[in-house]
Design a protein around this nucleic acid. Sequence first.
DNA 1: ATGTTC
Length: 476
Amino acid sequence: MSMAREVGKYHQTVKLRNGVLHLFANAEVLASLDRKVYKMADNNLRIPRNHFMSYTPDAHVSSGACVGTTAVWKMSDGFVSPSIVGSDIGCGIRVHLTPLHKRDLQDKKVRRKLIKRIEKYVPTKRIASPFRNIELERVVKEGIYGLPAEYLPERGDVSAVRSVTHLEHARFAYDMAALEILPERIWKQTGRELGTLGGGNHFIEIQHVRVDEGQRKIAEKWGLFDGQVVVMIHSGSRAWGRMLRSEYTNRIKDAMEMWGIGTRDPRLIYVPIHAEEGRWYLNLMYSALNYAVANRHMIAFGVRAAFQEVFGTDLEMPVLYDLMHNYALEETHRGQSMLVHRKGTTRALPAGHELNPEPYRATGHPALIPGSMGTASYIMVGAKSGEKNFYSICHGAGRIYARDAVREHVSVDAFAHSMNVGTEEEVVVNRWTLEHILTECPQAYKDVDQIIDSVVGAGLASVVAVCRPMAVVKGT
DNA sequence: ATGTTC
């Protein structure tokens, strides 16, 4: 760490034993980073032929690799590391617009009613989806296109509707033969879960928008206005991703042992992209990305139904965007084909970049960054100078305390205070007590405003709108 | 994160 070199005020390069780590953070965030993240980066850099490795300011230690890692290998001779994708493959964020103004939800009772209705359609305690006619196999193979047409709210020509165009990806194509060696129980045990929220940091949040003056033109093009109510959804590939994990972990560990490769940390697994196991993992990963995007789509379907019950069936709630923060994607950078791992980092492409989906080609796509519960979330857009980090920005506030350590540091009273409990401004939560969800309290996370300042200061992205929470639905 | 534990 003594070898840190300032490239810009918000961009350092750190020369570690096994390679160079790029670090994007303001002085305050930089000073507060846990030293263990450098050790983890150094160990990740033992994987041969790494092309680029960086941390966003929300970086924190996780299994095998830090959340907040962007790691790049060339497709031609590189490696894929399931540990630098993360265990919840395809985890990501989706935002839906509404025509409502925050004054429509001024009454706490309306907010309570709304989240109750949401729970009617989006199971938060159970794992059984109310949508019984969804075929798991079609979804993991075809993503959004694998859903019955009745769940695509703009019916008609599926290829022309917003539900499949305003997304990072509606469907990943891959070699489906990879699914054939999965044990039968995986299909049985995960069959009825699509459209359920999950626990931990997953949430559905009702927020109100404040457009940033500097980006008012883009905000208008995207359909955002001051005071607007929007819904942010955070979920992933649920048990499908979890089940795959035990399969690929065993298989890749065996292969690593056979080849005699590995590092000091047994949780860091990796394999050449073009080895049989590497291709197999990538194919399984795509199936989980398909699952995850369809899962968020179905959660949103339930949320729309709930809003329409409360505010009328004419209420339109188009998707703004859906994108992920745990995956590895093949992307062309400076004419070279690369495998870009993002573990808890978000792609934020600038205006004109060809990887933007067509509707957002001219402006750049919305990059959706949740804060912690009770604090602001951000809608951002990537900058041209984000190229220096392969167009990756933060994925959220980033943890300070591990889940099992939160209770030692934060009281339920302090949590309640931060949620304005007892006032008219209360962020209404679907749980009877905050005790159950204490691990997700804002005090367990870094200050999201400092994270955003770091990203903006580093020239990776700019803020289009700030979204403040009004109501939250959490799972268990 | 998770049909709640590497």
